[in-house]
Amino acid sequence: MLNSAMPYFRAISTRLITGVLVFLLVTFSATALSSLAPGSAAQLILGDYATPEQIAALNAQYGYDLPVWQRYLSWLGDLLRGDLGVTLFSQQPILGVVLERAAVTFEIAFLAMAVSLIGIPIAMYTASHPNKLGDKVMRSISTVLLAVPTFVIVVLFSYLFAMVLRWFPATGWAKFTENPVANLWYVALPVLCLSMHQTAYLYRVARNEFVTTLQEDYIAVARAKGLPLGYILFHHALRPAMPQILTVMGLSLTYMLAGSFVVESYFAVPGIGWTILSAVKSHDIPLVQAILSLTVVIFVIVFMLVDLGYALIDPRVKVS
């Protein structure tokens, strides 16, 4: 992924063009999805007892009777105007709902990612003492953690921390803007659950990366200079290992989002995952479509940030 021979700005613009194409591909597919509905989309949304008038009204509003490409173009137009219509049942503006819920998911995902960074110093330490007790123990723990799906962690942790130990509340929510302390209180367990898999994964990748880096000649030179181990790790090993770690952090965002569905539904956190689950239940197709599109935008942005990160970390990647 890291290609130092390619001028940096070209890499970024290639990424941007790819991102736009991916966005168009995914949003178009999302629009086309409603054509798969048995019967018609309007029929599906309104249920078996809908009158023809109700169906006609819905079609007029969402255009489910139009060809896919026409519907897609009008959806794109709506997007540019910043108005994606209203949710089917609560009749709130879709864009507002999605962004508000996304902020909640973002908070949890961001905190979980921050917690998972603990894997990096642990990896640094164990990689510099390979096959010692600490290394073996951490490797076993991470291997086991990677085998426990997030939904299992959610169940086990809520049993342990909410039912047996009663350290954290099992469910509930407070807005960060209204009561930050309560918000952090409610968010603790979801964040912990979501970060477990991520921490183990990050640790593993970082450990392998550090082991490889520590075999480089320039590390032998640093050791020959008599530099202390801590200095060598932070000044000579950390930066070379970062590009790979950054890539993995970007890539694992998909896994975190999938994990957030589980975490949010179990702890009743009003985020994107919770929203899409209720949207699925009520066949709120426009809302599902909006969430899919938002996800793609987030991923394109994250990958561009990862590219930017390369340039900050690796002096060989520079705008030419």
């Binding site: 480089e216 000649d217 320039y218 032998a220 030179v221 640093a222 000044h235 000579h236 930066r239 070379p240 970390i313 690796d314 002096p315 060989r316």
Partner: peptide, 8 residues
């Protein structure tokens, strides 16, 4: 070529 740390 490999004795100097390319990142420093």
């Amino acid at each position: 070529m490999t004795s100097l740390n390319p990142f420093v």
